[in-house]
Nucleic acid binder design. Sequence first.
DNA 1: GCCAACGTTGGC
DNA 2: GCCAACGTTGGC
Length: 150
Amino acid sequence: MKWLFKSEPESFSIQMLKKNKITHWDGVRNYQARNFMRDQMQVSELGFFYHSNCAEPGIVGVLEIVKTAYPDHTAFDPEDPHYDPKSKSDAPRWFMVDVKFKQQFSETISLTQLRNNPKLKEMLILRNGNRLSITPLTEQEWQAVLAMGV
DNA sequence: GCCAACGTTGGC
DNA sequence: GCCAACGTTGGC
């Protein structure tokens, strides 16, 4: 399956991923997004990296899943902004996967461009008010976006 | 189980 | 900073 990972570049950007090479995608605190990660993501699957809540929101690159879901330890840490007291280490509520940098597009594929592509009419991220940080994409959507990238 | 109140997300 | 859309919480 193909995926889209959304992040605010101020907290985590594609530039940081490029530098780190591999990171754990922590901080997901939404059940639907968690279920995608925990139940469906497989090693070597690819995803787009989307920058949200910034000057130019859009798709900025490609990453690869390198480790399937395991407990998100940031939920156990009272000092962490994503701390969740209801997630216990013997019964973790939240999970994360590890992802690896693959590619950064030379230009952001902007939200406007995405909206203007008729092939992407059904893409979840473009739905009004969709706030899911992890969404699946169809193969057709994946190819259509790739074709827009430079 | 319903639903109002509240908090968060995210484009603009 | 505004505000619409959505998810979660908690009283009943």
